[in-house]
Amino acid sequence: MNTININLDACDGCMTCVKACFANVLRWEKPAMSPVVAYAEDCVHCNVCELSCPRGCIEVIPDFAYMRWSAL
């Protein structure tokens, strides 16, 4: 499955990445006040979290082999 790396040292907790994910892969962890990758198996590597992070804290590494379906 895709890998989503979040550099929490650089994250300022703006929550944009959590809002940006249309698949609810990221969740907001209240005690830590930071985003967490909760459901990586649902990530479709649209990269919108990565592109919207104002501090460039997120990297999405697609696993293209994870996306599979039978056309035959």
Partner: peptide, 13 residues
């Protein structure tokens, strides 16, 4: 909205 209004759906992707 199941995700976040304004970020959801296909239109912006």
């Amino acid at each position: 909205e199941k995700a976040t209004t304004g970020w959801a759906g296909k239109a912006d992707r």
